[in-house]
């Protein structure tokens, strides 16, 4: 990619919901994606939303973007064709979005299907993107426990932003009110498979109980299923020497695998 041209990044944003109250808000991961985009020098940032024109979208505007293109879609529609069409018209260099929606099925398929339809690679769980030396982009990917992996990708590509990426900046009321929700007319495609989905309030998942494999009496099965092993208080070292205490700690650390020892693996 040439450096002269101003590169375009499009952030796909959705309407999220607060996990406790269920009230509409900016989606956490989508706003992190926008934060990532706003922090990339040399890119012009545009926002794209497919769905209803919810006032919650203004929270993205409050982060300092002038407008959002809203592809109005009924709630029963499959938004991917509309997004793909808009992106084809727009031909950005980079598309960012969250990993998983906060409402609906939230399978996380949208970015994959968009990337597939555009024929672009998809890079998941991104925390930062910077320009590499040889025209590629260096992408840091979040691994569990704060670890990171470096990937090299050429534009154009689609990236989903990890929840471990930098927290989104505050959404300010004034800019949010002044920004524009620009409706863009697109056809909508119905999503027939959605009829099979049956939504219900989340049930508490059954707690796994340890079944006694060879239990012969009810008492034993009961005990195996209910005994709490760790909660009865741990080992307490009082009289040992400092060195013995330290080695007790060290043994536990090694056993838990948090201290790297040259063990065969």
């Amino acid at each position: 990619m040439s450096l002269d041209k101003s590169l375009k990044v499009r952030v796909l944003v959705s309407v999220g919901q607060h996990p406790k109250s269920g009230r509409e808000r900016r989606a956490d991961q989508d706003s992190r994606a926008l934060e990532l985009a706003l922090g990339m020098p040399g890119f012009s940032v545009g926002l794209l939303h497919a769905g209803s024109e919810s006032p919650a979208l203004r929270e993205y505007l409050g982060m300092g973007v002038k407008a959002i293109d809203v592809l109005k879609q009924p709630s029963s529609a499959d938004v991917v064709p509309a997004l793909v069409q808009a992106l084809r018209n727009d031909s950005p260099d980079l598309v960012l979005c969250g990993t998983r929606a906060e409402t609906g099925e939230a399978s996380g398929m949208t970015p994959y299907r968009v990337a597939n339809a555009l024929g672009w690679p998809l890079v998941p769980a991104v925390v930062s993107i910077s320009r590499g030396s040889d025209g590629t982009y260096e992408v840091l990917q979040a691994l569990p426990r704060g670890q990171r992996r470096l990937l090299k990708v050429r534009t154009p590509f689609v990236a989903t932003v990890d929840p471990a990426a930098a927290e989104a900046r505050q959404s300010a009321f004034g800019p949010a009110q002044r920004g524009q929700l620009q409706a863009v007319a697109v056809a909508s495609v119905a999503d027939p498979a959605a009829n099979d989905l049956e939504f219900s309030p989340a049930r508490k998942r059954p707690k796994r109980i340890a079944a006694a494999r060879k239990a012969t009496t009810a008492a034993e099965r009961f005990k195996a299923a209910t005994v709490k092993s760790a909660s009865k208080g741990g080992q307490v070292l009082v009289k040992e020497t400092a060195a013995e205490k330290a080695s007790a700690i060290l043994n536990l650390l090694v056993a838990e695998g948090v201290i790297a020892v040259d063990s065969p693996s």
Binding site: P19, D196, F199, S200, P201
Partner: peptide
Amino acid sequence: TCRAGSERNDVTRS
């Protein structure tokens, strides 16, 4: 049965 968005709903399907 799947956990849907924000862990607030379950989705059941074939």
